[in-house]
């Protein structure tokens, strides 16, 4: 077992925990997206650490990182699109004011 790998994974676990807290506790759509970004950053750290310390000769690990970065960009684009539409309709991006979506 490598000490460096455990350090990086532990830091990623901490970022993951903070991201979960942020995504669940915030009432603002943009702040929730920040929590999701932290969770995805933790996933990125894990992928790079696994590539570096377990399989540096296989480039599929780095390819996965590019895919997760794509997911981050897509999440931001769609999230901001929804935020703009919501702000235009209600003048706010507070998720607690979106109860009427329940129907």
């Amino acid at each position: 077992m490598t000490f460096e790998l455990v350090i990086v994974l532990a830091m990623a676990a901490a970022l993951f925990g903070i991201g979960i807290y942020g995504a669940l506790s915030q009432t603002n759509l943009v702040m929730i997206m920040m929590g999701v970004e932290l969770i995805l950053a933790a996933a990125l750290l894990n992928l790079v650490a696994f590539w570096r310390y377990l399989h540096p000769e296989t480039m599929a690990g780095q390819m996965f990182v590019l895919i997760v970065m794509t997911v981050m960009a897509v999440e931001m684009a769609v999230g901001f699109g929804i935020a703009v539409a919501r702000f235009r309709a209600r003048g706010s991006v507070e998720v607690e004011e979106a109860r009427e979506l329940r129907g």
Partner: peptide, 8 residues
Amino acid sequence: WGPAAQEV
């Protein structure tokens, strides 16, 4: 986790 790779 098994042994760590040394060379990159």
